[in-house]
Design a protein around this nucleic acid. Structure first.
Ligand SMILES: [Zn+2]
Ligand SMILES: [Zn+2]
Ligand SMILES: [Zn+2]
Ligand SMILES: [Zn+2]
Lengths: 138, 138
DNA sequence: TTTACAATCTCTAGTGACTAGAGGTTCAAG
DNA sequence: CTTGAACCTCTAGTCACTAGAGATTGTAAA
């Protein structure tokens, strides 16, 4: 049995975040000492590691809730889990696509101005003022 | 002179968002009718278009504030503008890099499970439980 | 001119996933 | 037994909006 601080150190999840996860229902309410402090065991550590990993991969709290529920029922079909992962993948790919489009425009803008001119003639500012300068939609 | 709704239609920025931008100091306070409704002109339209374009490119409100201030002083050096754009580009590139790493892991997970198994044996869930499955850091 | 009603106004609160701080209590080492 | 780091709860702040309540205004048809 160890404290929330120890759990925090082992998982690299900040203490207030652990409490937040508990409040959100991601972590079951921890056991308490007589003085009302949380105590965790290996199971708690594993659950939090799972959550942390899923968050690192960009899954929402809501998605993680579903994943955990599934994990707690080993006999159920894992179809929902795959669905969530595939949706997350689609989400990530959509974000990459958008960001790549932005990157192209930003490169063009940065190239167009060396910063030695005057605001009035600045290519960056002119580009922001008029989307027509852009080569792609974004 | 046109209403906030008309401005919204022309810029594709929602009405409450326009009011929010005004509150944040991005838009100068609009003229009002005798009945206290906002009225805009071409200058207002151009400023909002600038803001919208910058937001679309991912610039923060704070960054846009600086850009607008610069725009209002045509004689100033545009160094700050370039700096902001370059920082934004770096930010976008960092995000892309992170997302690409996530994409690789998510592809692996999605490939590892067809969704026809049982939760206990699910590769997606196993991968989330243990980062050791991952091929890259993320 | 009156009436109807969409559009506008201000204000407050909610979103997601935390983070920060105040003010008080408990644990563990010395 | 004392000290002080770590813990507790609660509230509020972050970013860039978005939603809704309840009241007022603008405009066009009857
Ligand atoms: Zn420039
Ligand atoms: Zn553009
Ligand atoms: Zn599976
Ligand atoms: Zn991993």
């Amino acid at each position: 049995m160890f404290s929330i601080g120890e759990l925090s150190r082992r998982t690299k999840v900040k203490v207030p975040t652990i409490r937040y996860y508990e409040e959100m229902g991601l972590l079951v309410e921890a056991e308490r000492t007589s003085g009302n402090q949380r105590r965790y065991d290996k199971a708690g550590l594993e659950r939090l590691s799972f959550i942390r990993h899923a968050r690192d991969l960009g899954f929402s709290i809501e998605a993680i809730l579903s994943l955990i529920e599934l994990q707690e029922h080993p006999d159920r079909s894992c179809q929902a889990a795959t669905k969530i992962a595939v949706a997350q993948l689609a989400d990530v790919r959509a974000k990459v696509k958008k960001l790549k489009a932005l990157e192209r425009e930003l490169v063009r803008m940065a190239k167009g101005c060396d910063g030695h001119g005057v605001s009035e003639d600045c290519y960056v500012l002119a580009s922001l003022a008029d989307h027509e300068h852009c080569e792609n939609e974004h």
